[in-house]
Design a protein around this nucleic acid. Sequence first.
DNA 1: CAGTTGCACAACCCTACGGTTGATAACCGC
DNA 2: GCGGTTATCAACCGTAGGGTTGTGCAACTG
Lengths: 124, 124
Amino acid sequence: MPTDPLTRLFSALADPLRRDLVARLAAGDATVTELAAPYDVSVQAVSKHLRVLENAGLVSRGRDAQRRPAHLEAEVFPLMTAWIERYRRQAEERYRRLDDVLASMPDDVVPIPPETAPPAAPVP
Amino acid sequence: MPTDPLTRLFSALADPLRRDLVARLAAGDATVTELAAPYDVSVQAVSKHLRVLENAGLVSRGRDAQRRPAHLEAEVFPLMTAWIERYRRQAEERYRRLDDVLASMPDDVVPIPPETAPPAAPVP
DNA sequence: CAGTTGCACAACCCTACGGTTGATAACCGC
DNA sequence: GCGGTTATCAACCGTAGGGTTGTGCAACTG
């Protein structure tokens, strides 16, 4: 298993069934058999998926006799959003600056193309 | 390749090298050889990674003679943040409600444990 | 034109992943 | 104690993923 928290988080959510488990656990804690019921996969498979989510820090397991109710942990979510937002902002900032540069350029350097007509022939 | 956009996005960012590519592309467009330079992997490997990012909609490719500069696309980022934020909020809301329930309960149903002392013996 | 650069495609190797079945442990309820 | 439930462990299987090398192609450069 990878030691990098972000790698664990992103690869944990890369599986549709695991994302579905997270979505259902957001509504409330649930046991393995409860979680496995809607799918046509074995209980062991769901147990494995839960382990992946647990290793990513997205889920913690309780204990109620034989049952091991799964509980969604919301604290790790910001780790992902922080990463994503960081580079989204950076990319958008770069885009904004490019806009400024283009706007400040004289029209003969960056000619403004007509709405639908083909580009004009170069001046001889 | 999976048709689900979220699966493509999350599994694209599940690889540390691909996350690093995204981070570097956030600073500015770059060619494949430029991107491959810092790592000790082949150029073809980086080309493959770029295609994964492209299929996820995170990267678009331009054309400058032989070069194919890669450009980071920021529009798809909200797809992930929306998913993450949705269930983070839901989990936190559930947590807040649980707090309310506990706070409204009489103390003999949910006894308030002392700070450090062991729990008191049951009343005879 | 000949040579070099920049990149993609194809075939292959190995490992990790998602799935299965079977066995096993722990805890009820009767 | 005995069956029944709940869940994990272990071994196995097929495929997708990340890596390599080799080849080929398009476009610049001398």
